[in-house]
Simulated assay, not measured.
Amino acid sequence: MRSFCESGVCCLLLLMLEMSSTDGVIDPQSVLAQSYAQSRHLAPNTRPRQRTLNPAASDSQCRSRPLDLVFIIDSSRSVRPAEFEKVKIFLADMVDTLDVGSDATRVAVVNYASTVKIEFLLKDNFRKEDMKQAISRIDPLAAGTMTGLAIKTAMEEVFTEQAGARPRSKNISKVAIIVTDGRPQDQVEEVSAAARAAQIEIYAVGVDRADMRSLRLMASNPLEDHVFYVETYGVIEKLTSKFRETLCGLDPCALGHNCQHICVSNGASYSCKCREGFVLNEDKRTCSKKQMKVEIVQDPCLCEARLAFQRQTLASIQDLSTKLADMTRKVQQLEGALGRM
């Protein structure tokens, strides 16, 4: 009987492990470090549906604001050819999701392994069909994982006006999405900090064996909104809906502003306002306290009674001010005497 029960428990455990491996369940050890809004991967007992590289356009597109968006994708030896095709499907899905165009969202792709290859720039393609064709032609580079070099290349050669990025004056958000399944073979902390200082918002997507500490070093804050993990490339396309919600909902004020008091989003840009009792200065970002003017309006008829009342009121105010100053001085003296005791 005992042997039968033990066999039953073992079978149940094996069944649970098999279900977790086929359903793309997220590694529970990564919960504390990751955002799991994408954990709505798959319904129970379902498998990832097969997709082509040229999916139909999404019914829901980002039309709220334009972006300069750069994908930085890992194609090192650890990414098998079939897995790399899944990454390309994810990129194509993202292109379908976004409102792309010269005056809308511009997209570039940086491919990396031991070397870095800019597949296309922000200025190269302004139509979805052209972007997806360019994505379909991307080949893996194999070999190592120089993630830091890829971020540096994107910052210095892709997020530039010469490469198609919009001028800072246009307040177009700059966003980088890094997809990797390994541990960087170079330093990522300093170059990622420099990119974030240049107002590039970084999302880090880890797959399978990805080094979670490196993802956190690369990503923007708050980490729970910028670091993601999926167990296999087979479910990476499930992140498309998450990024659609995130990128469509970008708030220019949330991305950083220089308003002293209140930031007000205006679509693709923002303006500054002041709290009650303050006025906006000429620089349109700082605030100054309103100056309260007290004026005594003299009656045109020069009524003696009113003039006398005004003089008496002013005298009373001055007398009260003198007494208040005297009391303040005495209190300070008393406090000083107590302090010396």
Rank of each mutant, 00 (worst) to 15 (best):
R2L: 15
S7C: 09
G8Y: 12
C11Q: 11
C11F: 09
S20M: 01
T22F: 06
D23K: 05
I26H: 10
S35L: 08
A37Q: 03
Q38I: 03
L42Q: 07
L42G: 07
L42A: 06
N45Q: 02
T46Q: 12
R49P: 05
L53N: 06
L53R: 06
A56F: 09
A57P: 07
R65C: 12
L69T: 09
F71A: 01
S75N: 02
S75V: 04
V79S: 09
V79M: 08
P81H: 05
F84G: 07
A92S: 15
T97I: 11
L98N: 10
D103Y: 09
R106Q: 15
N111G: 06
N111S: 10
D124P: 08
K128A: 11
D130C: 08
K132H: 07
R137E: 03
L141F: 14
K152C: 07
K152L: 04
E156D: 11
E157H: 13
Q162W: 09
A165C: 01
S169D: 01
I172F: 05
V179M: 03
P184M: 00
Q187I: 05
A194P: 04
A197M: 04
A197D: 03
A197N: 10
V205R: 02
A210L: 01
R213Y: 06
L217N: 15
S220M: 00
G234S: 02
E237F: 13
E245V: 02
L250K: 10
D251I: 08
L255F: 05
G256I: 00
G256D: 00
H257C: 04
R275Y: 08
E276G: 09
E276S: 14
C287V: 06
Q298P: 04
D299A: 11
D299T: 07
C301E: 14
L302D: 04
L302M: 14
C303H: 11
Q312T: 15
A315M: 06
A315Y: 08
D319S: 15
K323G: 09
K323E: 01
L324V: 12
M327L: 14
Q333T: 13
